[in-house]
């Protein structure tokens, strides 16, 4: 058996984190949660995950800035990042993709869809 795929989930809404942890763990992912951009950056550097699910609006360092730093970091550059955000106007979606997001999902979202998109990016969870 191989080790589970580690996913970093970053959102300032604790309930959403709980929901994602529950759903993703059920699919066999190893889930790490971060409540804000600063915490996410720390986790990214200390133990890099295989994929990131990223909210846009977070305190301190927002999701776009986290994404930009990921793409500028040579070791993290190729990391799959899915933006999961309530900012869903055209300019927000285009902006996120231009910054290097691998995929974009708008809130409210369909958890099944998120899982499917994650697996497409990382391969099966285990």
């Amino acid at each position: 058996m191989s080790t589970p795929v580690r996913v970093l989930v970053c959102d300032d809404d604790p309930l959403l984190l709980e929901l994602l942890e529950f759903r993703l763990a059920a699919k066999g992912f190893d889930v790490q949660a971060a409540r804000d951009g600063g915490e996410a950056m720390q986790l990214l550097e200390s133990k890099p995950p295989s994929a990131v699910v990223l909210d846009a609006m977070m305190p301190f360092i927002d999701g776009y800035e986290v994404l930009r730093r990921i793409r500028e970091n040579p070791t993290l550059k190729a990391l799959p990042v899915i933006m999961l955000t309530a900012r869903k106007q055209e300019k927000d979606i285009v902006g996120a993709l231009e910054l290097g997001a691998s995929d974009f999902l708008a809130k409210p979202f369909i958890p099944e869809e998120l899982v499917a998109r994650l697996i497409r990016l990382t391969g099966p969870a285990q």
């Binding site: 609006m57 977070m58 305190p59 301190f60 360092i61 927002d62 800035e65 900012r87 106007q89």
Partner: peptide
Amino acid sequence: VNSLLSLQYP
């Protein structure tokens, strides 16, 4: 400024 930029507003 960072804190202002991360305010939630469309």
